[in-house]
Lab assay of single mutants.
Amino acid sequence: GKMTGIVKWFNADKGFGFITPDDGSKDVFVHFSAIQNDGYKSSDEGQKVSFTIESGAKGPAAGNVTSL
């Protein structure tokens, strides 16, 4: 299901970062391709987002990331 969290950091040059879930669980990796914004796929530190957890090649990753 959908979770909410805060972007801990995001490196636009490398195209990835981490989200800290609101439920206190482990930080989740986020790749720019998962960000659902139109246009520039980046996110700012401290941005509140909703997301799903997908199982990626390197473990859990955020999917369907949407700014709230």
Score class of each variant (00 low, 15 high):
residue 1 G to R: 11
residue 1 G to W: 08
residue 1 G to C: 14
residue 3 M to R: 09
residue 3 M to H: 11
residue 3 M to E: 05
residue 4 T to V: 06
residue 4 T to G: 02
residue 5 G to W: 04
residue 5 G to P: 00
residue 5 G to F: 06
residue 6 I to R: 08
residue 6 I to N: 05
residue 6 I to S: 07
residue 6 I to K: 09
residue 7 V to W: 10
residue 8 K to A: 07
residue 8 K to S: 07
residue 8 K to I: 08
residue 8 K to T: 06
residue 8 K to N: 04
residue 8 K to P: 03
residue 8 K to V: 07
residue 9 W to Q: 02
residue 9 W to T: 01
residue 9 W to S: 01
residue 9 W to A: 00
residue 10 F to G: 01
residue 10 F to M: 03
residue 10 F to I: 04
residue 11 N to L: 05
residue 12 A to S: 11
residue 12 A to V: 12
residue 12 A to P: 12
residue 12 A to F: 12
residue 13 D to G: 10
residue 13 D to N: 12
residue 14 K to C: 11
residue 15 G to V: 04
residue 15 G to F: 05
residue 15 G to Q: 03
residue 17 G to Y: 08
residue 18 F to K: 01
residue 18 F to L: 04
residue 18 F to P: 00
residue 18 F to S: 01
residue 19 I to A: 01
residue 19 I to G: 00
residue 20 T to S: 10
residue 20 T to Y: 05
residue 21 P to G: 03
residue 21 P to R: 02
residue 22 D to F: 07
residue 22 D to Y: 05
residue 22 D to N: 06
residue 23 D to K: 05
residue 24 G to Q: 04
residue 25 S to M: 05
residue 25 S to T: 10
residue 25 S to H: 06
residue 25 S to L: 05
residue 25 S to E: 04
residue 26 K to I: 08
residue 27 D to L: 06
residue 27 D to M: 06
residue 29 F to N: 01
residue 29 F to C: 08
residue 30 V to W: 08
residue 30 V to L: 14
residue 31 H to F: 08
residue 31 H to E: 04
residue 32 F to R: 10
residue 32 F to I: 14
residue 32 F to P: 02
residue 32 F to T: 07
residue 32 F to Y: 12
residue 33 S to R: 05
residue 33 S to V: 04
residue 33 S to P: 02
residue 34 A to S: 10
residue 34 A to G: 06
residue 34 A to H: 06
residue 34 A to P: 03
residue 35 I to S: 02
residue 36 Q to W: 11
residue 36 Q to A: 11
residue 36 Q to F: 10
residue 36 Q to L: 13
residue 37 N to W: 14
residue 37 N to D: 12
residue 38 D to W: 13
residue 38 D to V: 12
residue 40 Y to A: 10
residue 40 Y to Q: 09
residue 40 Y to N: 11
residue 40 Y to C: 14
residue 40 Y to E: 08
residue 40 Y to W: 15
residue 41 K to P: 10
residue 42 S to M: 13
residue 42 S to L: 14
residue 43 S to P: 15
residue 45 E to F: 14
residue 46 G to A: 07
residue 46 G to T: 07
residue 47 Q to P: 05
residue 47 Q to D: 10
residue 47 Q to L: 12
residue 48 K to M: 09
residue 48 K to W: 13
residue 48 K to C: 11
residue 48 K to R: 15
residue 49 V to R: 00
residue 49 V to Q: 00
residue 49 V to S: 01
residue 49 V to G: 01
residue 49 V to P: 01
residue 50 S to N: 05
residue 50 S to D: 03
residue 51 F to K: 00
residue 52 T to Q: 06
residue 52 T to N: 07
residue 52 T to R: 04
residue 53 I to A: 01
residue 54 E to M: 12
residue 54 E to C: 13
residue 56 G to A: 08
residue 56 G to M: 09
residue 56 G to H: 12
residue 56 G to W: 10
residue 57 A to F: 12
residue 57 A to V: 13
residue 58 K to V: 08
residue 58 K to R: 13
residue 59 G to H: 05
residue 60 P to G: 04
residue 60 P to H: 08
residue 60 P to K: 07
residue 60 P to D: 08
residue 60 P to R: 12
residue 61 A to S: 13
residue 61 A to R: 15
residue 61 A to P: 02
residue 61 A to G: 04
residue 63 G to S: 13
residue 63 G to R: 13
residue 64 N to S: 07
residue 64 N to L: 08
residue 64 N to G: 06
residue 64 N to Y: 08
residue 64 N to I: 05
residue 64 N to C: 12
residue 64 N to Q: 08
residue 65 V to M: 05
residue 65 V to I: 05
residue 65 V to Q: 01
residue 67 S to N: 13
residue 67 S to P: 14
residue 67 S to I: 15
residue 68 L to P: 04
residue 68 L to D: 06
